[in-house]
Amino acid sequence: MTSSHTFAGRHLLGIEQLSPADITTILDLADQYVDVNRRADKHSDVLAGLTQINMFFENSTRTQASFELAGKRLGADVMNMAMQASSIKKGETLIDTALTLNAMHPDILVVRHPHSGAVNLLAEKVNCAVLNAGDGPHEHPTQALLDALTIRRAKGRLHRLNIAICGDIAHSRVARSNLMLLGKMENRIRLIGPPTLMPSQIDQFGVEVYDDMRKGLEGVDVVMMLRLQLERMDGGFIPSAREYYHRFGLDAEKLSYAKDDAIIMHPGPMNRGVEIDGTLADDIHRSVIQEQVEMGVAVRMAVMDLLARNLRTARANETKKETYV
């Protein structure tokens, strides 16, 4: 499966900047990397000679591991920097950190930051490809792309599906990137959760909003659960974890309102017994949670491959210009 469209972006900052054709291009290439990853010899050298730096200003084990593995399988030199432990504690600004790194000539910068827009700001100051691995509650584009790939492979298409996103929408970058991506691909999106966890004027994003899990799940093809952060369970946004589980936790009874072949997704890490019933999460007939993790590596390989191609083209053009001056 190959498409004639070429993704021309210099960075991947969000789903907002992608066209439906860009999304299809990325997913098509990711499909190929899924096959590569299932082989005994997974190694390729499309990123050989390139340096990838993972800058995580916020804790993450899974996403960072996924990016690291993706880079290594493509032959890049990968370095991890745990930023919350280092320079920002010493008062260095984000831009100074970026300029310092830039001087080390990285080619791909993978950035996670607790503040929305921080990755955009950083991208303006460096001359390498920047990949947003999550900025505040703004965007998490590779998560949305891996979710899309999972859905496309499970359902055979990525359009005209009824998709429910359930839980803490307000604080979730996963929800924002997903509703943008799934909307661009012309799906019908429902958001389900307590009104205290819904962002303001979310009804203006072309989605249907429910605060009743059963009504919201009626006839859906995909059920996407979101993680409820521990710090939001203490009575500030919801009364308690157990009341949340009772009203919004996914169990077999609530799931019975969805289509019989509806799939269950979760970006991880899961709170079993808070937003999702443990047995349901492990049900290999319904849950695609493990596939999501697998697709994550493939999608990140595809994105980095495409960004590296664009980076090489841009650099070749610069060299040409210099030669002819």
């Binding site: 827009g117 505040g136 924002r176 303001s200 004027q201 994003f205």
Partner: peptide
């Protein structure tokens, strides 16, 4: 200010 724009940008907002 809270609203559609704040939601889109994922920024802390006030009603």
């Amino acid at each position: 200010t809270s609203g559609k724009f704040a939601t889109l940008r994922g920024l802390p907002a006030v009603n």
